[in-house]
Simulated assay, not measured.
Amino acid sequence: MGMNLMAAPDTREDVDLNQSVVPDRPWQTVVWNDPVNLMSYVVRVLEQYFGYPREVATRLMLSVHHDGHAVVAEGPREQMELHAQAMHDYGLWATIRKAPQ
């Protein structure tokens, strides 16, 4: 189980160094602002689906309203895809993305 300290460095230009340093970077579910849904409805969805307390759901909704979007969940990609689909089922616009470093 010894390491070869003389191994040649990987000089391929397509290597994403950030990817190899942080392989388990989580994913995020992002809810985006839309012209259709009422603010009270977005709060209710966040409370019902994610179980957030009203204060948290309201803060997230205000981020959506003022900043155009809010990260509503973070974790494994498969779970974030399920969350985004659930948001679509509620009529909200949601996407997933890798969490920034």
Rank of each mutant, 00 (worst) to 15 (best):
D14T: 10
V43W: 03
N18D: 14
V45P: 06
D67Q: 04
I96D: 01
A7N: 13
S20N: 14
L5N: 14
R77F: 06
R25I: 12
G75S: 09
G68H: 03
V36R: 12
G51D: 05
V72H: 09
R59S: 15
L60T: 00
P9I: 14
V56D: 01
T29M: 02
V71P: 05
L46S: 07
H66V: 10
M61C: 05
Y90N: 01
H69P: 02
A57V: 03
N37M: 01
G2I: 13
V30L: 07
M61Y: 03
V72W: 01
P53E: 00
Y41H: 06
F50K: 04
H69Q: 15
V64H: 01
R54V: 12
A57R: 03
L82S: 08
A99R: 12
R77H: 11
W93C: 11
D14Y: 04
K98A: 08
V21N: 02
I96T: 12
D34T: 06
L17G: 02
V31D: 00
M87D: 12
S20W: 15
G91A: 06
E55M: 05
V43P: 10
H69G: 07
N33A: 07
T11M: 12
E78F: 08
W32Q: 09
Y52A: 08
L62H: 12
R59E: 12
Q101M: 05
L5T: 15
A86D: 03
Y41L: 02
P26L: 08
P9R: 13
R77T: 03
V22W: 14
H88R: 03
D89P: 10
E47G: 02
Q85S: 15
L38G: 07
V36Y: 13
Q85A: 14
P100D: 13
E55K: 11
N37W: 00
R59A: 15
H65A: 07
A86N: 04
P23Y: 10
T11C: 10
G51H: 03
E78C: 10
T11D: 10
E78Q: 13
V22D: 15
M61I: 07
N4A: 12
V43E: 04
N4D: 15
V56T: 07
V31N: 00
L60K: 01
L60A: 04
W27D: 13
P23M: 11
Y41Q: 02
G51W: 00
N33F: 08
